[in-house]
Design a protein around this nucleic acid. Structure first.
Ligand SMILES: NC(=O)c1ccc[n+]([C@@H]2O[C@H](COP(=O)([O-])OP(=O)(O)OC[C@H]3O[C@@H](n4cnc5c(N)ncnc54)[C@H](O)[C@@H]3O)[C@@H](O)[C@H]2O)c1
Ligand SMILES: NC(=O)c1ccc[n+]([C@@H]2O[C@H](COP(=O)([O-])OP(=O)(O)OC[C@H]3O[C@@H](n4cnc5c(N)ncnc54)[C@H](O)[C@@H]3O)[C@@H](O)[C@H]2O)c1
Lengths: 244, 244
DNA sequence: ATAGATTCGATCTATGGTTATCGATATAAA
DNA sequence: TTTATATCGATAACCATAGATCGAATCTAT
């Protein structure tokens, strides 16, 4: 999910050159393009067209073209784009060529998984420390990162100029943690707890709602089994097969 | 990101009573409503209006009303909805009152986190077994679930009538795993690997693309720091604060 | 009992994102 | 060199979703 979307404030999202806003869905597709292009590069393919990308990613070519235009890349008729250039364009567009140092709070199941995910560094995300409130976890090391007491967060974030916070605590604690992060000057929060965070407008919050995805999935699955009668001229199962 | 959306096929999504399609964004919001209503119930509140919900969830009341109508719930003017009824309506709508038994493949970092998440059972998801290809993991128990060899999956899925598969393997293995799941008659796949799965049209795939979220987040963060000049009458930072 | 306030449900409009179309341009083949 | 074809980039049409409005229903307070 993601889905997601659901901009409570439909304020335009502007991209660096100021050449107009970028739709959130386009932004979400960027990492797909990036991943796909990396595969192409591994295969030694150095040029690619929107039609090719679209065919492989199940998108109409014109949508691919529009999305890529936001990165500022310029393609050549008949040839398409240079894969290497395109990858760089996307990485630069997303800011993946700079490192974002982050603090993670909640060294539990999910937090541990994220802490152990080295691949994040390839995408500019460097989790530098973990925080928890559980005395038995404080002082331990998880995947090479120290678990510190939560009350050290704000001060450290400020001193280390950390701008990104990741919340993997239970929902009940999420707001407290977010407040603490903001107190430390953190600008953006990646929230995995199913909670609506109240934050000042200048703070970016991106909530990863797994339950929302689960809802979507189980609804579709329920459709599949409980309404086999429904047949009104459309597809046998009126449910789209691929979304995310 | 949640997200998403990105229906490659804009085929209508129909809901049980066949009273028209439900927008994917509405579906995604359902779990938010559910979570919020549970909180209300904990606080002993038994009635709620769309205005109230909207105020608390940062949505306009009319959108809340529309979303809730999809569940078939019927409200009373002046009073609003009965919280308990509404919760049941949403759960029944999403199929959360039935149990979805699932197989998980890839008992690594993320897989372990999911296996250990008991709360899923509250939402109808019961992960009954894990699978892996790593001989050192096979035969072990993770959070009380056996880790079995992948080649047992198809047969077991069929015999146990498992309809849901969860993929938490590296991207390279995802397609193989998906194929195996489909061979076992699995109808829906919750995919956490950053890979586009090719599946028959009758199989539902929901990809949880964390990199996509990360992209969105890091783009917004990059905006924040690299374009402080941009000031064209709108908000100081033209980036929306809350999305998911 | 009646007046007033509030909210639901339905219809209509606006916005934003997706998709189709068209001209321009670069490559490849004749 | 010329011609055919594929692809880009821009514009325009289209469609889904979000948001506004309005009448009808219900509750509360006088
Ligand atoms: N694990 C999953 O698969 C999964 C799936 C979906 C959603 N989530 C959500 O992710 C979050 C974390 O899930 P989890 O399974 O890792 O839970 P967990 O219980 O394993 O870990 C939570 C951690 O947060 C710490 N914590 C609690 N209160 C804190 C506070 N006030 N300050 C700092 N740390 C605090 C706990 O000590 C613990 O280490 C939850 O909100 C959960 O709903 C998890
Ligand atoms: N851990 C995270 O925080 C995180 C974040 C974003 C995305 N992801 C994605 O989730 C997936 C899993 O991540 P992870 O960190 O748990 O990786 P991991 O390496 O810890 O675990 C992967 C597991 O899959 C198993 N596996 C490999 N090939 C297999 C096959 N063919 N059949 C069955 N099992 C196989 C491995 O033995 C291992 O146990 C990856 O695709 C990763 O990109 C993970």
């Amino acid at each position: 999910m993601v889905i997601d979307i659901n901009l409570s404030n439909p304020e335009a999202i502007h991209h660096p050159a100021g050449q107009g806003p970028i739709p959130q869905p386009s932004l979400n597709r960027m990492s797909q393009y990036h991943h796909y292009l990396m595969e192409l590069q591994d295969q030694g393919i150095d040029r690619v067209s929107c039609s090719r990308i679209g065919a492989d990613l199940n998108l109409v070519p014109v949508q691919v073209r529009k999305d890529l235009q936001y990165t500022g890349i310029i393609g050549k008729p008949k040839t398409g784009y240079v894969v290497a250039e395109l990858i760089l364009a996307i990485e630069s567009f997303l800011g993946w060529n700079n490192v974002n140092e982050a603090f993670l709070v909640g060294a539990g199941n999910l937090g541990t998984a994220l802490l152990g995910h080295e691949r994040f560094t390839k995408f500019g995300l460097q989790i530098v420390a973990a925080f928890d409130s559980d005395p038995s976890k404080i002082g331990q090391w998880v995947h090479g990162k120290a678990v510190l007491p939560l009350d050290k967060l704000a001060d450290l974030a400020q001193r280390m100029s950390i701008h990104l916070g990741i919340i993997t605590t239970p929902a009940e604690a999420a707001q407290t943690v977010a407040d603490e992060m903001i107190r430390g000057g953190i600008q953006a929060i990646w929230n995995f707890a199913p909670a609506r965070l109240k934050v000042p407008t200048h703070v970016i919050v991106h909530s990863e709602d797994l339950y929302s995805s689960l809802a979507s999935l189980s609804w579709k699955l329920a459709q599949r089994f409980h309404v086999p009668i429904q047949q009104e001229g459309g597809t046998p199962d009126g449910v789209d097969a691929n979304c995310g």
